[in-house]
């Protein structure tokens, strides 16, 4: 009966110019099945647009997928804009190809967690506090 409590709302987006969206779509599907309300914002988003989406959708989480290597440019901008919009309460997750050396720097900027290749969906679902585990029902 636990799914009658409020489902976590998570915006998933890709920022910048990389068009590889297979991974983020798998995550979207997996989190949906784990009981999340997943708002998929799509490809090629600008940081400004993503932050407005997070606000207007009143999301609890923002998940960003970056495979282009531009994370040290895009993520700081997003964190800045979130703060400027009064959205400090939104937790940010990162996925894609992020070199290990950059992970501590990103966490210092306020990124809650970086999920690299090989991450399982239940791991992410557990992290965002999704309660439903469909296979256990």
């Amino acid at each position: 009966m636990s799914h009658l409590t409020r489902a976590p709302r998570i915006v998933l987006a890709k920022v910048g110019l990389d068009g590889h969206d297979r991974g983020v779509k798998v995550v979207a599907r997996g989190l949906r099945d784990a009981g999340c309300h997943v708002i998929y914002a799509g490809l090629w988003q600008q940081p400004e647009a993503v932050v407005q989406t997070v606000g207007d959708e009143d999301a609890d989480w923002l998940g960003i997928s970056i495979l282009s290597g531009a994370h040290m440019t895009l993520v700081p901008r997003i964190m800045e804009l979130l703060e400027a919009a009064g959205l400090e309460h939104v937790q940010v997750l990162l996925g894609g190809i992020i070199p290990d050396d950059d992970v501590p720097k990103l966490q210092e900027l306020g990124v809650a967690r970086v999920f690299g290749p090989g991450t399982s969906i239940p791991e992410i679902a557990k992290f965002v506090g999704a309660v439903g585990e469909p296979s256990d029902d």
């Binding site: 799914h3 009658l4 489902a7 979207a28 599907r29 989190l31 949906r32 099945d33 784990a34 009981g35 999340c36 309300h37 997943v38 708002i39 998929y40 914002a41 799509g42 988003q45 600008q46 400004e48 647009a49 407005q52 989406t53 999704a130 439903g132 469909p134 029902d137």
Partner: peptide, 21 residues
């Protein structure tokens, strides 16, 4: 919303994204 898990994939805004931001 899924009746089984309570989850949902909300993708409508992708078709409205020309005015994102």
């Amino acid at each position: 919303e899924s009746v089984l898990t309570g989850g949902a994939l909300l993708g409508d805004r992708v078709r409205m994204s020309a005015h994102a931001g």
